[in-house]
Each structure stands twice: as structure tokens, then as C-alpha cells.
């Protein structure tokens, strides 16, 4: 056979076989796409934050479409609007998303806390924390390098006088900052109702805390004694509010000598447009 013709025949034959093989394979081994899940995913905010407990928005959408979960209120960033939209699509009852926002439980501003060393390393809380628990005397407090700022996709966190503050008006309750903080200082507080919270996590004895930070909890028990609802307890020299029992009467807030318990009304703060709690 003519060598040119042979070359043409062989290459076209290989191309034809490969093409046919692919066509047949794509027909017989097509994977059905879950269109319903795609529809639900389009409603979700797409932050892929994992606050719902599934692997991102597509995971939550797939679970909803397969009926693995019937809770439409798991998406914290989406809030009630998304819950209603999901309910409309799936025919489930719309659950109510209780709005919450993240709060940094520390008041170790530069004018309150003292430093024990001059840290000039990498500007990262996680790295600074590895060196003697940070540059501050208080090893429980906010280091203010903004690991939380870096993970926040909503621009809700800023560094103010040396520590991180979160703007509840912008916070989408995705919990990314809660995971990012090496000191575990960030907690979610309800947005719809006022709430007393201890803005300190220092577990040293009172005299030591005093030297480390002017706004540190010294464990004096005055808040425990004044509370009528058994909502405040001191554990490891640091007060803690039981949010389930707290009625936000504000009495602990009034008696606290270092003012580390605050009656926080996130909704008011969010409405006033102030930055930071």
C-alpha cells in the first residue's frame, strides 16, 4: 500500500476508534446529575463556610435534596431568607434561623494589658502564640495579629487598639474566626436578645491577673453572689455566664470591679453602626 495512504488510514482509524469509544463510554456510563441539589445550591450563599455541618454549600444542598436532613435553618450566613427559599424549593417547613454574631471575649487593649517581650516575628497569632504563648503578660488574651481578620470573608473584623473587634452588623455567623483563633477567644452570641458575657478568659489567680491586665477577671465572685438566676459561675479563677440561664438583668455587669462583664446587645450595636464588641 502507498505509505502516505497507509499513514492516513492508520491515524484516522485510531482517531475514529478513540472517538467512538469515548462516545459510547459517555453514553453508557453517564452519571445522572442531581439537578435538584444544584437548584438548592444556587439559593445558598456559596460561602462554603461549613457552619451547617456539611462539606460546604454543595454538601448541604445534596443532603437536602436526598432528604438526609430536613432542617432548612442550618445556613447561618444565609439566615431566614435562605431558610424560606429552601423551604419553598423542598416543600419542608421553614425553620427559623436564630441570628447570632461572633464576639471576641477579651478586653486586653494596649492600654489595659502589658507586654512581657518585644515580639518582632511573623505577624500571625498562631506563630506568635508558639513563642511563650504570645508577647503579652496574659497568655489567654487576644494577640491582635488578625488571624481572624484574614479568614473573615465579610470584612467584619478589624484590629482596634491592639485586639480584634467584630462588627455584628457585618458578621454572617460562619464561625470561620472561631476556628482560626489560637486562643479560642471567639464565641457566638445571640443577636436577637441582649446577653451578659464575660469578656475575659484569664485563668490566673486574681493578684496575677491584676498585674497582667487592667480589665482581666480576678475571680472575685461578686457577680456569682449577685446573680439571682444561678447563671454566673467562677471556674479556674474566671467567671463564666451560662447563656441558657442568663436573663440579661445586668446586675453582674454593675457589680464587676474590673468591668469585664458586659451586657451586650448586639442588635443595638449592629443598628447603631458602631464597630466592635
Amino acid at each position: 500500500m502507498d505509505p502516505i495512504l497507509l499513514a492516513v488510514v492508520i491515524v484516522s482509524a485510531i482517531g475514529l476508534i478513540a472517538g467512538l469509544g469515548l462516545a459510547v463510554a459517555s453514553k453508557f456510563m453517564a452519571v445522572p446529575v442531581d439537578e435538584f441539589a444544584d437548584e438548592i445550591e444556587a439559593v445558598l450563599p456559596g460561602a462554603n463556610c461549613g457552619a451547617c455541618g456539611f462539606s460546604g454549600c454543595s454538601g448541604y444542598a445534596a443532603a437536602l435534596s436526598k432528604g438526609q436532613t430536613k432542617d432548612t435553618a442550618l445556613c447561618a450566613p444565609g439566615g431566614n431568607d435562605v431558610s424560606k427559599e429552601i423551604a419553598k424549593l423542598t416543600g419542608l417547613d421553614a425553620g427559623e434561623v436564630l441570628p447570632s454574631a461572633a464576639v471576641v471575649l477579651c478586653q486586653g487593649f494596649t492600654h489595659n494589658s502589658s507586654a512581657k517581650l518585644n515580639y518582632i516575628g511573623e505577624k500571625s497569632c498562631r506563630m506568635a502564640n508558639q513563642l511563650f504563648g504570645g508577647y503579652k503578660e496574659c497568655v489567654y488574651g487576644c494577640l491582635g495579629f488578625g488571624d481572624c481578620v484574614n479568614v473573615c470573608r465579610y470584612g467584619a473584623i478589624s484590629i482596634c487598639h491592639g485586639i480584634a473587634r467584630i462588627n455584628p452588623a457585618l458578621c454572617a455567623a460562619c464561625r470561620m474566626c472561631v476556628e482560626a483563633c489560637p486562643k479560642n477567644l471567639i464565641e457566638m452570641l445571640p443577636l436577637h436578645t441582649p446577653q451578659s458575657a464575660v469578656l475575659c478568659k484569664n485563668q490566673e489567680k486574681g493578684a496575677v491577673t491584676r498585674k497582667q491586665c487592667k480589665a482581666g477577671c480576678i475571680g472575685c465572685m461578686r457577680c456569682v453572689k449577685v446573680c439571682e438566676f444561678d447563671a454566673v459561675h467562677v471556674e479556674n479563677n474566671c467567671a463564666k455566664v451560662d447563656y441558657a440561664k442568663c436573663t440579661a438583668c445586668g446586675k453582674c455587669n454593675e457589680v464587676c470591679p474590673v468591668k469585664c462583664i458586659a451586657l451586650i446587645d448586639l442588635e443595638k450595636i449592629a443598628g447603631a453602626g458602631k464597630t466592635g464588641t
Binding site: V11, G15, A18, G21, L22, A25, S26, M29, V31
Partner: peptide, 23 residues
Amino acid sequence: LQTIVFILVIAALVQLVEIVLKK
């Protein structure tokens, strides 16, 4: 013809493998 045939075969093969793996 090595270059053209190999490219053709490898490209088709990878596509096929992708389909099979997906299934």
C-alpha cells in the same frame, strides 16, 4: 507518526479514564 498518534491516544485515554472513574 509517533507524536500525533501518541497525543491522540493519550488524550482519548485520559478522557475515558475520567468517565470510568466518575462512574
